[in-house]
């Protein structure tokens, strides 16, 4: 099996005090939707930042598409949406998308068609000429997601992409995610929602900076004899806490 990202024995500490990741190792297979699942503060965002190369890490700890995470060549092959909106709220939705499309290297002609296509996919065609500042929270979130979807990256990393969105839109976005992986790309999606976890091919369950389990939703449910992922996650957390008393 080929892997899009490999993390080896990674520990990350901020300011020499806060341990965000504790000896984490994992491999993410190509062409799948991998879910990083865990509560707030479990280390999901730090792991995502490590994979997209936003953290300065020791060499050989994180490899992405065969290169060291953060390598310049990866910037054209990996797209990332952070939890921050990271779009210009004093520009219109369309102006935002056009600018980012030019930055990722789309030609003038490609920009026009791609922007319209993405606006339709995230259901923002009617709001395209509105300033981002005038949009609702969910709409702003979709502008940020639209920026991440502009290119055709081999790896798309989305940090909590569906927070604040309505169920219908979430359903449509997951169809879009499937469409993207159908074309051979890989998606890494973080979420604290166990309902979302069930939609992923592979799950990485995280708790207090550690990976407590890796496997498909059905494997994890079976392993823990649980009816759903939420129950499986809770059982795994209790098992981990028993092993490592505080």
């Amino acid at each position: 099996m080929k892997y899009v990202a490999t993390v080896r024995d990674l520990s990350v500490t901020y300011d020499g005090r806060v341990k965000a990741l504790d000896d984490v190792s994992l491999k993410i297979p190509i062409g799948q939707i991998a879910g990083l699942i865990g509560p707030s503060g479990s280390g999901k965002t730090t792991l995502i930042k490590s994979i997209v190369g936003q953290l300065k890490l020791p060499a050989n700890k994180v490899a992405v598409l065969g290169l060291s995470a953060g390598a310049g060549q990866l910037r054209e092959r990996v797209a990332y949406m952070s939890q921050e909106l990271a779009v210009y709220d004093d520009l219109t939705v369309r102006q935002n998308l056009i600018y980012f499309a030019r930055i990722i290297g789309l030609s003038r002609l490609e920009v026009k068609t791609r922007v319209e296509e993405i606006l339709h996919k995230v259901d923002l065609s009617d709001q395209k000429n509105q300033l981002v500042t005038d949009l609702s929270g969910g709409q702003k979130q979709r502008v940020s997601l639209a920026v991440a979807l502009l290119g055709q990256p081999e790896l798309l990393v989305l940090d909590e992409p569906t927070v604040g969105l309505d169920p219908l839109l979430i359903e449509n976005l997951w169809k879009l995610f499937r469409e993207i992986t159908g074309k051979g790309a890989t998606l890494i999606v973080s979420s604290h929602s166990m309902t979302e976890a069930a939609r992923c091919d592979d799950l990485v369950l995280m708790h207090e900076g550690k990976i407590i389990a890796i496997g498909s939703p059905s494997e994890l449910e079976e392993k823990t004899k649980s009816r759903n992922i939420e129950q499986a996650f809770l059982k795994l957390v209790r098992q981990t806490n028993k092993k490592e008393p505080k």
Binding site: G53, E76, S82, E84, A86, V87, D89, F100, I103, I104
Partner: peptide, 11 residues
């Protein structure tokens, strides 16, 4: 706002 960070993850 995170836009600089987003731009720095792009080419």
């Amino acid at each position: 706002s995170g836009t600089l960070s987003r731009l720095m993850s792009m080419p």
